[in-house]
């Protein structure tokens, strides 16, 4: 994630490393606070004690305070080794997201072999026999274990009724 370059002053030498985070968090706090103002009013008979928007507002305030401290704290904390952003992240998300989207209507297991084949390919695997075995076996295994043996409720879509 690149820092918000457009917010940086002309000489960024001394810019606190977490300033961008701080601003984002403060923005989220502001948004959250606005949302709390939209809560329904409490029905008359229930009115006892703290009103429902109070607690979230307190928490938002606390986060905001922390965010301000963050801006001036200076240290970035021990971040994990930051992997560079790659296309693979987006494509993986796309694959996963599409799969979940189809799971409801078509069922989890209908497109699972396709998902199982695409995933390793996206991550660079090229041994086709291995991929084929994986894509063929895993769905069957999962189906046998979770649907047939355990009776776990899962979106079966087109396969509804199979395996009882």
């Amino acid at each position: 994630m690149t820092d918000r370059g457009e917010d940086a002053p002309a000489s960024p030498r001394r810019l606190p490393p977490d300033l961008a985070d701080s601003l984002v968090i403060l923005a989220i706090c502001a948004g959250g606070y606005l949302l709390t103002l939209e809560f329904d009013p409490v029905p008359e008979f229930m009115r006892q004690g703290l009103s429902p928007e109070r607690f979230p507002q307190i928490v938002i305030g606390v986060i905001g305070a922390f965010a301000l401290m963050l801006a001036f704290a200076g240290r970035a904390g021990q971040a994990e080794k930051r992997p560079r952003l790659r296309l693979r992240i987006a494509t993986t998300l796309l694959l996963v997201g599409t799969y979940v989207a189809t799971a409801e209507s078509l069922g989890m297991f209908t497109l699972m072999p396709l998902y199982c084949a695409l995933f390793p390919v996206l991550w660079g695997e090229r041994h086709w026999p291995l991929i084929a075995a994986y894509a063929g076996l895993l769905p069957v295994l999962l189906f046998a274990l979770f649907v047939v043996l355990l009776g776990t409720p899962l979106p079966l879509g087109l396969l509804e009724g199979l395996g009882g």
Partner: peptide
């Protein structure tokens, strides 16, 4: 009970009457 639905399911499906599934 575990095997029942599996065996029974197949059997009852042939009847096409209620109930024939879970």
């Amino acid at each position: 009970v575990l095997a029942g639905p599996m065996a029974g399911g197949a059997e009852v499906m042939a009847q096409d009457s209620f109930p024939s599934k879970t």
